[in-house]
Design a binder for these strands. Structure first.
Lengths: 251, 251
DNA sequence: AGACTTTCTTGATGCGGATCAAGTCATTTT
DNA sequence: AAAATGACTTGATCCGCATCAAGAAAGTCT
């Protein structure tokens, strides 16, 4: 808020150029000078606690946000109080892209645990991207990547079996944790079974049964939120094999 | 291809400023001068015939395309020859946004009937958007809108019944035809039942049965590709009512 | 026109996963 | 520590839609 530059531990810590997430978020591919300018418009706020909303559907849109620690669930509330979980977001991931459209958030975002974010005021980002072609390019790529990811989700929800859905889900987390320097085979899921089910288009009970089944088959060990993948190749097989089976879609 | 400017009926006909689709595609919100410049980079090719590919997954990406007449199906081919239909696109709609990501098309696009398109070389569009903030803004909005639309599809595939899916599908076409100045209640669908089913995550037989059922209930009259909606409000009820029922997703 | 192919429809059957119901375990409250 | 609450699991049952099968209608080829 204040424009005076105060040297503090926090300011140093959160500068984009020192951020370990830079390769995942916007600064990717920018020159040091560019990063400096981008850094100038980014705001760091107080952390959110479990259950706090980062924004809600209908809120005025002003900033994109990059998760820097913790995790976030985005969901689209429908009329009746129900919801569709749209995604689970880890550090380095950008959320709010869907709100550019008409300056209002169309979905909601809620912290699944203690979570810190960088806020990027969109109008400033837009101005900056006008004078920084590489930033503009990066923005286009990010928006396009988001579209590609949702496309994969469409295939998952349209064609895949419950087993495949959960395997895909687990491998997605495995890969993303690995990218971030954590174990690909031993991690904690911050969301509930219910939220997983909602995301994957399955009932809670089905998710629970699948975890049990996967454990019985020695594919993983699970105890509440703690998951250890014991046979990652086999999980990839499940994702592949069943999608080969579902040739129902040949036209 | 040739750089000589030849005055021809075609050239006149297809200028952006005279295009009836301008309010649906990129020129929306641009000044006449801006439209002129945009017009300068747009290419119009020979029309595609039914079954022709506009591009295939894996093709090098160079241009976004706006449908100007006809209709196009986009789909994501999966390993085994099956496919997930991603969308059906009408005049004024922009396709190829998913390919910006890594300079390659991730999905394929095929003409469902005789179809004309404008090609917009992306690198030129990008340069232009650097010097035309309103174009840049429009691009961000379009990309964001695409994300929002896919989000709605996720809810459809994740939570809705077969009946709701088909009603949603029909109303989507009804609205889009209306926007384009055609009848909202009497139109031809250019895709097969199989393609509709694939898109909606349903078997062909289910789609066929639902058409029959809707007809029996006097919601519509259907004869092969020709659809007449007889009770649009009731179709909206179906979309709403069932989504109120499915409160399974409350967390 | 006749043969063939493809698309669509309709009926019969079966299965995957939802729903219902109850119990277990963990966490929070008092 | 006991009670209450919420998250997860497990079992029983049910239903929506996929699948299988066959026929009808439309489009294509010769």
């Amino acid at each position: 808020m204040t424009s005076r530059k105060v040297i503090s531990f926090e300011n140093i810590k959160v500068a984009c150029k020192n951020c370990s997430l830079a390769t995942l978020c916007l600064p990717m591919g920018l020159t040091p000078d560019d990063v400096e300018r981008l850094d100038g418009i980014i705001k760091r706020g107080r952390p959110y606690h479990r259950g706090d909303h980062l924004y809600r559907g209908g809120d005025k849109f002003h900033s994109l946000r990059v998760i820097t620690s913790g995790s976030v669930k985005t969901y689209s509330p429908n009329e009746d109080g129900g919801e569709q979980v749209l995604g689970f977001h880890l550090p380095g991931e950008l959320i709010g892209l869907d709100a550019i459209q008409d300056d209002n958030h169309t979905c909601s975002a809620i912290a699944l645990e203690t979570t810190a974010v960088c806020e990027i005021p969109f109008s400033q980002l837009e101005s900056l991207s006008c004078i920084m072609p590489s930033l503009q390019h990066q923005m286009y790529r990010l928006l396009s990547r988001e579209i590609g990811q949702e496309t994969e989700m469409l295939t998952l929800l349209g064609k895949k079996s419950a087993e495949e859905r959960l395997a895909t889900f687990l491998l997605s987390f495995s890969e993303r944790f690995k990218q971030r320097g954590f174990s690909a085979s031993d991690f904690f899921l911050s969301m509930s079974r219910h939220e997983i089910g909602n995301y994957l288009g399955l009932a809670v009970e089905t998710v629970s049964r699948l975890f049990t089944r996967f454990q019985d088959e020695n594919l993983l060990h699970v105890e509440r939120k703690h998951v250890q993948l014991l046979n990652i190749p086999r999980l990839y097989d499940i994702v592949q094999a069943d999608s080969a089976k579902s040739s129902q879609s040949r036209i």
